[in-house]
Design a protein around this nucleic acid. Structure first.
Lengths: 189, 189
DNA sequence: TCCCTTTTTTACCATTTGTTAAATGCTTTC
DNA sequence: GAAAGCATTTAACAAATGGTAAAAAAGGGA
C-alpha cells in the first residue's frame, strides 16, 4: 500500500488527506494463475495496481496464435487504460501469469477521485505516458534484433522475471518459438 | 494551417480566439530531404507539425547500425515530446525523408500557449497518448510477424508511404535487410 | 511416493532470412 | 548526353529460425 502511494507521488504532489482519500477507494483483488483481469470483447471495469505477482497483456492474431505483448510486475499499474477511460470493448486480455494481489478501482471510484483531487488527471496522464513510452522502448527494439539478442534484452528489461514466467510466454513475447528459445538458453550457458 | 486546427480540435474544444492565439505562435520551417529536425545528443528545441513531407525517427544501435523506428507523414505532430518537455538530451534523430514543410513552436511559445489556454495541457496530453498508442499498435506486432507479413502490415499502417520512402529505410523499420525486402517485393508481384 | 500432466529440451529437416558480391537501373551533375 | 554516384535487384551460399515429433524433466495431486 505504501508502495502504491510512493509510486503515485513520483508523478505529483499530494497531501496526506488526498492520498488517504485515494487509498480509501481502493479495494483488493486476488487472482489465481491464469485468471483474467480483463478480457478482449469486454469493457474493462477496473484499474489495477499490482502488489504481488506478474501479469501479461496478450491477444490472438489472425492466425489464431496467442501473442504476449507485455509483462507487468509488482508495483505497477495494470490497466487497458484507454479502453477503461472510454469504457469501450478491449481487444486484449490481461491475464495473471502467477497468483496475484492487486489494488483495484472501479470506474465510478476512479472518476470520483478525478473529480475530487485537483491534479489527479495530470498525475494519471503522466503515469500513462510513462508506461506507454516504456512499452515502446522495450518492445520496439526487438523488431531489429536476432533471437538471442531479444532474449538478452528481455532479461535486462524485466530483471527477475525470467524464472517467474513460463518459457512459452517469454518466447511469444520475443516473437520466436519456444524451441528456439530453449536452444538459445542452452547456447548461452 | 486549417488542417492543423482541425487536428487539435479533435482532442478538445477551443474557440476562435484561442486557436488564433495558438496559430499566432506558429512559425514555419522547411527541411530538405535528409536534414535533421532534431538530433541525438542535443536538446529538442521545438515542436513541429508536419504540413508536407515525411519524416522518420531513427537511432544507432550498439553495433552502429542505423535503425528506423517510425515514420510520420502529413498532418501529424513531429516531436520527441518527452525530451522536449523536460528539455533534456534526445537519444534519437528526427530526419526528413523527403523535403518537408512544418509549423514549429519554440519551447518558450509552447509554454506560453500552455499558460494562456485553459485545457491546452489536457489536449496535448491526449494527443501524445494517442500517438504513443498508435506507435505501439503499429510497431509491436512486427515482432511476431515474418518478413512478408511485416511488409504488408507496413503498407496497411502507412498507406501511400511505400513510394515516398527509400527501400532501405522501410527495410530498417521492418527489421530486415534491404535485399530481403527487395526479394519480398518480387515475390508479391 | 508414484502417477499423470505439463513444461522444457533435443533432434532432424524444411524454410526463411542474412551475407557477400555483382549487375542493373536511376539521378544528378557537368 | 556521358560519367559518376546511389539505390535497387539478383544470385549463390551460409546461417538462423521454424515445424514436427519425441524424449526428458519438472511439477501437482492422490
Amino acid at each position: 500500500m505504501e508502495e502504491f502511494i510512493n509510486y503515485i507521488l513520483q508523478f505529483g504532489n499530494l497531501n496526506k488527506q488526498q492520498t488517504d482519500f485515494i487509498v480509501g477507494k481502493a479495494k483488493t483483488l486476488e487472482l489465481h494463475k491464469e485468471d483474467y483481469f480483463s478480457e478482449a470483447g469486454k469493457v474493462p471495469r477496473q484499474v489495477g495496481f499490482l502488489l504481488e505477482g506478474v501479469v501479461r497483456f496478450c491477444y490472438y492474431n489472425n492466425k489464431g496464435e496467442e501473442i504476449t505483448q507485455y509483462f507487468i510486475d509488482e508495483n505497477n499499474f495494470v490497466s487497458d487504460q484507454q479502453r477503461f477511460e472510454a469504457q469501450v470493448l478491449a481487444s486484449e486480455y490481461i491475464q495473471a501469469v502467477t497468483d496475484c494481489k492487486l489494488l483495484i478501482f472501479s470506474k465510478r471510484d476512479w472518476d470520483e477521485i478525478g473529480n475530487t483531487i485537483v491534479g489527479w488527471d495530470a498525475i494519471t496522464g503522466l503515469i500513462l505516458k510513462n508506461c506507454l513510452l516504456k512499452t515502446i522502448e522495450r518492445r520496439s527494439p526487438l523488431v531489429s534484433e536476432d533471437a538471442t539478442t531479444r532474449y538478452l534484452s528481455f532479461i535486462e528489461n524485466f530483471p527477475g522475471l525470467v524464472n517467474r514466467i513460463p518459457l512459452s510466454y517469454i518466447a511469444s513475447y520475443l516473437g520466436i518459438t519456444q524451441q528456439s528459445l530453449s536452444r538459445i538458453r542452452r547456447n548461452i550457458r
